[in-house]
Write a protein that binds this DNA or RNA. Sequence first.
DNA 1: CTGTAATCCTGCGAGC
DNA 2: TGCTCGCAGGATTACA
Length: 284
Amino acid sequence: MPELPEVETVVRDLRPALIGRRIVRVAASRKRLRNPWSPAWNRAICGQQIKSITRRGKWIATKLTHSQLLIHLGMTGQLTVGGSERQRESHTHLIADLSDGAQLRFRDIRRFGGATYFSSSDDLDRFLAARLGPEPFDVSAREFRSAVQAARRPLKAVLLDQTIVAGVGNIYADESLFVARLPPRQLGCQTTSAQCERWRRAIVEVLEAAIDFRGSTIRNYVGGSGLSGSYQHEFRVYGRTGDPCLCCNTPVEVTRLAGRSTHFCPSCQKPSDRRNGRKTARTS
DNA sequence: CTGTAATCCTGCGAGC
DNA sequence: TGCTCGCAGGATTACA
């Protein structure tokens, strides 16, 4: 569920409500999360002050006085801060009482997400560095182009690979490919430099717009203050199977690619003719 | 190096 | 109304 824009929204919501507060008490449910929460971590973080909250890809790093927590929302994770009188919803797995009386809560229906304790910030940095490429806003045109053109995989699969660029998931992969007018199945190594740059700009454009709308809420997603996103109303292709393309009215198609449903306009995102692999130029 | 599938979970809508 | 099936924003691992 949460991709870069959603996670960024959570972080922005949480920051003013959490920075400077101390963690007074932590309670965890007994349900097993993807990275199981260790009861030893409860005491380890109690009494510590929250120094910073940052996003890296789809991960949320929370720096405390003497340690840090790394949180991933998986598909259905919700990380919210609010009054302790809020009703405790089902699937709430972690509740941290804060020094100002508010509560930070982690709720995750499918339990694909979780929180992990790191005593060393170097360990946390290494953990992320091993899994993530540059942020889409920071990657240079040259860096992006060479990574894409080195890949013998479809563009869609390239973008879902977090080591190429961090933070893009299924929704924004489809949306950015549409904006760049690139076919999801086109191989990275068949992509021209001009197409790569068009795509890089499209990714940045789509992500920034989605952040402005507080991300997309399809089912479960809420930001750190509990508010939903609204970028789902701006989708050009994602979830619009059979609906007319906003550019040419051709019905939007869906296919399976890299294990994920992939939405595209077969007309606007036609394979280009100038590279090999085309069957259309066959004349005899 | 690729790609595919399965795995971890719960909930929901479609179809019968 | 109730059942089964397939699918859902992700990451990781095993296997062909």
